[in-house]
């Protein structure tokens, strides 16, 4: 049987189905790995209640472990503590930015940006802070839509919750 650390490292290779540049560990969806004899329980939490990627993530976890000879797997979904974008690692935030998605600010700093007030978001393409929000709802539940007034490109902002 693999150890908790080995399993965690295996599962860290699973990308988020919608944003494949970051994995489920650095996104904060993978919460815990519990090894009990030859049984493994994987604890995950959804980013949003209705996130359609969760089923895919569950399937990916099971098949990843099966490929490594672990058959007895339970995936458990927990809601508490509720997922927050503050769990996304700094390294992952940088990956998001390079991918063209403005990373979430700290939840405490986010309110102003989404209320269309003061604190301007930085365009992930040209770095300009001259940006405006187009919609609080973007291409997926976790993103809002912004546009850069300098390079004119629209971009997704990974909104904080």
């Amino acid at each position: 049987m693999l150890s908790k650390e080995q399993i965690t490292s295996l599962l860290s290779a699973i990308p988020d189905p919608e944003i494949p540049v970051i994995n489920i560990k650095e996104l904060g969806v993978l919460r815990d790995v519990v090894v009990n004899g030859n049984e493994v329980e994987i604890i995950i939490t959804p980013t949003y209640s209705g996130c359609p990627a969760m089923k895919q993530i569950e399937d990916d976890i099971i098949s990843s472990l099966e490929r490594n000879g672990i058959e007895n797997v339970k995936v458990k979904m927990v809601y508490h503590p509720a997922w927050t974008t503050d769990w996304i690692t700094d390294e992952a935030k940088e990956k998001l930015r390079k991918y063209g998605i403005a990373p979430p600010e700290k939840t405490t700093a986010d309110k102003g940006a989404l209320m269309g007030k003061k604190r301007a978001l930085e365009c992930p393409r040209c770095g300009s802070k001259n940006t405006v929000m187009i919609s609080q709802f973007g291409s997926t539940a976790c993103k809002a839509l912004f546009q850069c007034s300098d390079c004119k490109e629209p971009f997704d902002y990974f909104k904080c919750i």
Partner: peptide, 20 residues
């Protein structure tokens, strides 16, 4: 388009809540 996305995103959250 933006409102179309907003309402469907909102629906998705509600379905997720209902599901759990």
């Amino acid at each position: 388009l933006e409102e179309d996305l907003a309402l469907t995103n909102l629906s998705l959250d509600l379905i997720g809540q209902a599901n759990s």
